[in-house]
Each structure stands twice: as C-alpha cells, then as structure tokens.
Design a protein around this nucleic acid. Structure first.
Length: 255
DNA sequence: ATGTCACCTGGTAGGTGA
C-alpha cells in the first residue's frame, strides 16, 4: 500500500492540484494539512467523486487536516485526546489495518516566542499519546508537516539556520524522542538525493534556488519497517502554477 | 540585497501567520 502526506496551504485553492495528484498517484491514503476550511466548507463531494473516502477536521482561516483513503478509515480521532487545544491539527484513522496519524505540527514562529512554548507543550502531548497509540496499534504511521528539520542535512544552509525555528536543539530533541518511541524516518531508510527538501519558502525565489528544508516526514513503526519499499518527495507539484509551498511525501509498504 | 501567498476585516488597504 502507498501512503502520502501533503501540506496544501489552503485546500480551497489547491483542491484541483490534489485531485490531479491523486489521479497520477492513486495512493491508499493521503493526509492533508493546512486545509484552512471550516468543516461546513470542506469539499467532501468532489473528493468522493474522485474515488476517495474522507474524514476532515478544520477551523476558520488556519490549520485544518484531512484523511483521504480508498477504503473508509475506521475509528477516526480528531486532535490529541486529553490535550486542550483550540487548533485543528491532527486526524487519525485505521486504513487497511494500519493506524494512520496525520499531523500539522505547530510552526513555533521563533524560539523566544509564546508560540514556541506552545509547540513544546504540543510535542510533549503528542509523544505521550503516540506512545499509547503504538501499544494499541503496532502497525502505525505518523506523518505530516512536523515543522522540524531533524538534522543539518535537512537544511539548505545549516549555518544560517542554526538555532532558528525548525532547527533548534529543543525541536530536534523532540523529533528524536518521537523516533525513540519505536518509529523510523522512512525517508532515511533509503539512499536519497542530496539537498532533498519538502518545503521551500515562497519568498526569495527559494524553489528556483533549491533553498529549502525537509520538515514533512513519514515515521513508521518498527512492526512496519520491514515492509517499507520506498519513500520519496515528489517535487513536481511545487512546479505547478500557484503551488503549495510544500511538496508531497510518499511511502510504499509491501503487502 | 531583494524577491510570497492566503486569509481576515473592512473596505478598495493593512494586518497576521507561515
């Protein structure tokens, strides 16, 4: 089966691109971030017409996530249970026996900001919850826009970005702690092209200059690791007219 | 060196977030 994650930066704008991409990449499940739609405005009918089931969880203006799947997702959960959070950031469901968690992690703005403190609290709550989820669902995939570049090789200019948001030691420690729960970064299971990024700022001609970060990730559980056949970033949609600033990331599982 | 995009409010621009 194939799974994918994509931060679309407004599904209202990017729905045609999502449907085009699914036609070319008919993955079994796709999680979306930054849909930026209230639930009453979610384009469920157009997605269903394209052959996908969908569960969604949004809010006005910001955030918003969705889980698209060929087979309907079972036991859908929205956000992190037990965390008091007014932002729509997580949607989970079981697809073909795999527990899929799609997340839009907080950006954090700047290391000295209140938003960074929220990011730290959110990451701690996520870790505690994923620990229990892994115990209940050994076959688990955690994917989405983590807003964390795990290592210097995930940053186009690690010197300039040292200590900046997405690259702080605190964020990187949280990433490692998530992995330490019993997950693996599927992208790094394979030889990858150098300078592989999943996000390029809209500003500064960053995509043309390939100045990006790898902040969108697919973590798979130890039980699934032997089944991982490939993992890649699809840069093509970033070349569209009116692209999202993020590219989709895909993983293929055998069996 | 610089270079954006999407959304909101409230109004035909400015502010916010990323």
């Amino acid at each position: 089966m194939q799974l994918a994650t994509w931060n679309v930066n407004s599904l209202a704008v990017r729905l045609p691109q999502v449907l085009d991409w699914l036609a070319a990449h008919p993955v079994d499940a796709l999680v979306l971030q930054e849909t930026k739609l209230t639930d009453d405005k979610f384009p469920a009918e157009q997605i269903q017409a394209a052959g996908y089931q969908v569960a969604w969880f949004g809010q006005k203006t910001y955030n918003g996530v969705a889980l698209l799947s060929k087979q309907p997702a079972q036991d859908v959960v929205r956000n992190i249970p037990g965390l008091d959070d007014d932002m729509a950031r997580v949607i989970s469901g079981t697809v073909a026996g795999v527990r899929v968690i799609g997340g839009y992690f907080p950006n954090g703005q700047a290391p000295d900001s209140e938003k960074f403190q929220y990011k730290m609290r959110w990451l701690q709550a996520l870790r505690n919850w994923v620990r229990t989820e892994l115990a209940a669902f050994p076959q688990l995939v955690l994917m989405g826009d983590f807003n964390i570049a795990p290592e210097d090789r995930d940053v186009y200019d690690p010197v300039a970005w040292a200590g900046q948001i997405h690259c702080t030691p605190e964020e990187r420690a949280h990433f490692r702690e998530l992995v330490a729960l019993g997950l693996v970064d599927a992208f790094r299971l394979f030889e990858q092209p150098p300078k592989s990024w999943s996000w390029w700022d809209y500003r500064n001609l960053a995509f043309r200059k390939n100045q990006g970060l790898r902040i969108d990730h697919i973590l798979v559980s130890a039980a699934l690791k032997p089944q991982v056949a490939s993992c890649s970033i699809d840069k093509l949609p970033r070349k569209n007219e009116r692209p999202s600033d993020h590219a989709p990331v895909l993983v293929e599982l055998r069996g």
